[in-house]
Design a protein around this nucleic acid. Structure first.
Lengths: 204, 204, 204, 204
DNA sequence: TATGAATGAGTTTTCATTCAT
DNA sequence: CATGAATGAAAACTCATTCAT
């Protein structure tokens, strides 16, 4: 089921393309888009500066490609092969574990996605992806609310924004040195996230 | 009991200083530090570009001043005159209301503070302020945990990062067009925040 | 023989004028004309920057005034009350002593005069002064040559340039740390200068 | 026995480097360091302004490179292949001729070296070169003194500073229009220099 | 008249992009 | 195609000069 074997040249080319995206992701994540010059990206990717322009029209096209790849990777990390038939709490726990694994395994992509000035350079395609990728989460939240596991009055969009923000906040706190995120901390955050949505048991 | 009236010149000077900080806060919030050139800041502040350098040694000193003023304002908005003797839930609600008011009344300061990766340019004084200003929140969380209102196992640092991140996530979702933050949404987010920490009632 | 007493205001004014010239001489000597900003001159002179422009049309007028005062001072130091009737060697020694005293008592003026980029900003009046002030030296050299004390073939202009340059070279070497100019060194230089011109005794 | 021919590109690069140094030497010599802006240097070197910063970190690095090249060139012009075994007077005459040839063939380098107050921008390496290059002259003077050709009491450092200054003074006088330096003048200056050091014949 | 804050043109320096090799 | 030196427009910053007070 493999795709046709690529020629040496093509493989090489794909390789360079990936190296450029890797380098750009890392540097944009660290210094921001405006704060990153193109030549350092080239250097980190071990290509010439001019080569970047054979793959991407300009710096803005590059950052959009970086964004899309990162967002896609996030979507895959969260949902690929996810068993939606599980009981709510195990499903939620797996979701959280996947989120955390993504943040650890692709820290640059995660961090880049959380940069805040995206709106200045994202094109329509990227913006659309932004809206699409996390859509399954909305479905999950909606279902759990219907099932009576989550608060009936919980607004789905608020819930998603809050939980996502909460996770990001924890990871950002670590980067800023306010916190060390070990398994205990991740679990604590996960439990907070769950409780924030879960239906409160009425005392008898 | 007012302080002595300032001379025209002094008032003017303070004025310019403030106008520069205002302009810089707004533009840094919108475009990021590296993405903002000095002349647009000057133009927005209605001063010449060179004037900025009479008040601030360089662009980095300016962004640090912006940061400090914003952080101070946040601290004041959250804690000034806050009655810590209230019952836990009303106290928490007031805290949340103050947070929201700050985000609404000083949107640029809020946005600058929370939507930027500051670590590249903050100096030691600013970093110290960063650590200091929200310290009272930690105290609050700690007390509520001691009182048995919050989960006994709740790690204070994780809780703060998560709730803060959740709030930021909600405001960011609004800016990104994913959400409209009206009173209902704010209340929903507040309730999520509370539940995320609150001790779960054991079923009998 | 004093000039009419000046009013307080006039004295004050003359004072400021002198302070500005002093400050400018010192800073121009140290940093060069182009390397010296006007505000530091004002600060050193304890006047406001704008005040300088009440006394001098612009920076160029200021540097010309500095030049003229320094050159005049040099002329006076060298020739005022000089007894031209002395025997050649004592006359030469006194001349050298006066030159050295000027370099020591007005080091900034001396150093400023030896800066090399004067031609960029000196106006015609200053240039004329340049040519005039040292004219008496030419006369001295000429006479000594006529008297057979100096070499008969000695070109007056070369002799003046060489000796002046030699003295400057010694003082500059001190500034550059290559040399300490004490009395012994001054005397050695003086003797070199004398010998460089003096008629060589034929061996019998 | 030639070195391997350089590729077009390499030659071109070395060329640009040299052109920039040439242009900078000429302009710094004429207007001083602070008085020279970078774009005129670029224009004279027929490169873009930005190109200068590919070769030199900043303007200060450029002026240091200019200084070193000029000082090296002076050292070579004075000492390369100089036959130290000659009789004192012919050796001195050759030294003087070399000095004059340098001033004529590389007027900008000579002028830059001697007509600037370098101490504001020279780095340690340049300062070291400054002290090193003329060291052989000191040796020469010392030997001639030992041999009894020069005055026994002649202080070497004063002698060097005086003679060097004298030469510079003569060349400066020419540039200032006080003098025309033809062979006769050069010879006259050379003889002055010699006499300034030479042991005086006692009358019998 | 003196002040010194403000100005904005000019300076040094950076960097996205091109193009000869 | 890939390279990376070169470009020049734009950024950060300086400073001679002005003018409201």
């Amino acid at each position: 089921m493999k795709s046709a074997p690529k020629s040496r040249t093509e493989a090489n080319k794909a390789d360079k393309h990936a190296r450029i995206l890797d380098a750009a992701t890392a540097l944009f994540a660290e210094r921001g888009y405006a704060g990153t010059a193109v030549p350092p990206v080239a250097e980190r990717a071990r290509v010439a500066a001019g080569t970047i322009y054979r793959f991407f029209d300009n710096k803005e096209a590059l950052v959009n490609a970086v964004f899309r790849r990162a967002k896609q990777a996030l979507g895959e990390a969260l949902f690929e092969g996810l068993d939606l038939e599980q009981a709510p709490r195990p499903l939620f726990d797996e979701f959280w574990a996947r989120l955390y694994r993504f943040a650890r395994e692709q820290p640059e992509a995660f961090r880049f996605l959380e940069l805040q000035d995206h709106h200045r350079y994202l094109d329509e395609t990227s913006r659309h992806l932004e809206r699409t990728v996390l859509a399954p989460v909305a479905v999950m939240v909606l279902q759990l609310r219907e099932l009576g596991v989550f608060e009936p009055a919980l607004p789905v969009d608020v819930a998603m924004a809050f939980i996502w923000g909460g996770f990001v906040g924890v990871m950002k706190a670590e980067r800023d040195g306010h916190l060390e995120v070990d398994q205990r901390a991740v679990d604590a955050a996960r439990d907070m996230a769950w409780r924030s949505c879960a239906r409160v048991q009425e005392s008898p």
